[in-house]
Design a protein around this nucleic acid. Structure first.
Lengths: 156, 156
DNA sequence: ATGAAAGTGTAGCCTAGGCTACATTGTGCA
DNA sequence: TGCACAATGTAGCCTAGGCTACACTTTCAT
């Protein structure tokens, strides 16, 4: 992921001296880009929460299997979650969520639910709704989420 | 992006000998993962089409500026588009779309429009709709898109 | 006509997230 | 009790997509 640092790329420097040049689009694009980094974390955290709730433990191998990646990849990502303070894990002792991780998991679950419900509400078939929600949920802002919620309220 | 190749990771091999273990989720996850690779291409192609339509030419620097990345990054991605048969470009002569690229651009534009319209229709504020659509549009399946279309028809 | 500025291109580096291969630790059963 | 096997962890490699730095074309204005 982009370091999000540095004394501004030359392109941006140039941008200064020019007409506006659609900084809006750039901002959106950048947001989409960084959203990806969050998306993975959310998927992992959500799954870990699910595993913990269901079976009481979240083992790297299970996580890997559920997500369809190698256990090595799972472990590497779990390491990132630890770095970012979302999870804790001691060698051979399973993965757990921190306070922050738990919160993120909940938010993710709620968001997922809401997105699926909205899709269903506008007529998307159940299977497709579940499937697409997986990708969509990470790009839904709070504002949009609120709108979804209102809309669903109105439907009842 | 994942090579999508190889004799199946050991995790998958293990999966064979076990209970189903949610292959569905794995499939969805994998789809989301690969969708990212497509997303970038779509953004570029859509922008190139826009630049060509508007100003008659699409220069790497303009693309870079609009997307908020360095020109070097833009050029590298353009190289990928060329590799994938979506664009053509000769040194110092601007970027153009192939037949396939053009088609992709159109599909992307339609999808974007539809997503924005749907978001607006369910009450998402214009600004947020535009912004979120950027991220969402790449994850909307044809089935879902069709549902959106039907829903919007019904709204009129 | 020519030289500076703008645009392009190239090289090299970084991180994330995949994978495989190999090493190590736990565990359950004979 | 000990050993086989499953689960974990580590190392090393790959690609995509960022960035900066530097080199080379084009263009345009004097």
């Amino acid at each position: 992921m982009p370091p999000e640092s540095a004394p501004i790329p030359d392109s941006a420097a140039a941008e200064d001296k020019r007409l506006p040049a659609e900084p809006t689009q750039a901002k959106r694009f950048g947001k989409t880009r960084t959203a990806q980094s969050t998306a993975l974390a959310e998927d992992y955290v959500e799954l870990i929460a699910d595993l913990l709730a269901t079976g009481g433990e979240a083992r790297p191998t299970d996580i890997a299997r559920r997500l369809g990646v190698s256990h090595a990849s799972a472990i590497k990502t779990i390491a990132r979650l630890k770095r970012e303070g979302l999870a804790t894990a001691r060698p051979y002792r399973g993965v757990f969520l921190t306070e922050a991780g738990e919160k993120l998991a909940i938010r993710a679950k709620v968001r997922h639910r809401l997105v699926v419900d909205l899709l269903r509400a506008v007529g998307v078939p159940a299977e497709a709704a579940e499937q697409d929600a997986e990708g969509i949920e990470h790009h839904v802002s709070d504002l949009t989420l609120a709108a979804f919620s209102r809309f669903l309220e109105g439907c009842k």
